[in-house]
Design a protein around this nucleic acid. Structure first.
Lengths: 149, 149
DNA sequence: ATACGATGTAACTATTGAAATTACAAGAGA
DNA sequence: TCTCTTGTAATTTCAATAGTTACATCGTAT
């Protein structure tokens, strides 16, 4: 298993929502900025909504952040949009021999070490907030810019 | 990008080599235990050899560990067999809009946070040795067993 | 009340990357 | 020299991911 582009896309979306609070951003506009399909954006927004990070509006359209950027960690975003990839994001070979004492035990052998690796990763993700990204953004962009295109 | 099965397979191979030092293990036998193709095993052994972790013998066949299990970390193994996946193992969407100020900067925005996540992962990997796996193995397997099948 | 523009959601297709497979050259004994 | 094994490239298969199409549903404005 593995970590897809979804986390990066979701962070991109959240940065957009945080930066352009003054205007309505539709999935179409967001997709332009992210460089992907609007349906993908909608699916991501749905997941973020289920996690309570954003609110979307049917009919009129547009999405808004529902938490302060200091309270949104990368871990929350990742869990929201790609949770299933975490458990087992280090690939396991699927057919170890049950006849071999090593093959029979390899999964349980790797469980603890891999768990520690994932812990290290999770802790790092929990320590980074959306606000930190925004701070970097403000540093990189002294002048304000216009949204998508 | 992502972490393939190679790391798990390579660890499996190293555990085999460490446990069955008394007999010659060919890529064919190892493949039986790992449950994969012998060519894949050879490719992994080649990489492990380049990294100085094992030695292989043409003609006569067989592979042996070249370092003490205490001196082999998961990080070394991972780097040996799947290094290229690490830089960028968190997927990035490939076409952010350069017209949008966020899209234009998203890569540099994510660089630092993602670097910290990878650091967390790398540090955890560096802290786990093959010997620790072997210790777990000995706990799980009080009785000795026979190799592959 | 109805038309319109947006989201919500399923189904399908295309694309990509990993693993398996095939094939064969080359080294090291017996 | 024959045979077994490793070394290595090329090809095929397969699964996962992203993109696409299609359409129902909702809210608002006219």
């Amino acid at each position: 298993m593995r970590i897809s582009n979804k986390c990066s896309m979701a962070l991109h979306i959240l940065v957009l929502l945080a930066e352009f609070t003054d205007q309505k951003l539709t999935s179409e506009q967001i997709a332009k900025s992210v460089g992907c399909n609007p349906v993908m954006v909608r699916n991501l927004l749905l997941k973020l909504k289920e996690a309570g990070l954003v609110a979307t509006r049917r009919g009129i359209g547009g999405s808004v952040l529902m938490k302060s950027p200091e309270d949104i960690t990368i871990w929350m975003v990742y869990q929201a949009v790609d949770a299933s990839s975490f458990d087992g994001f280090i690939g396991l070979h699927p057919n170890p021999s049950l006849q071999c004492p090593v093959g029979k035990n390899i999964y349980s052998l790797l469980e603890n070490p891999y768990g520690r690796i994932k812990d290290g990763m999770r802790e790092a993700m929990e320590a980074i907030t959306l606000q930190q990204l925004l701070d970097d953004y403000d540093i990189n962009m002294s002048q304000s810019g216009s949204p998508p295109s």
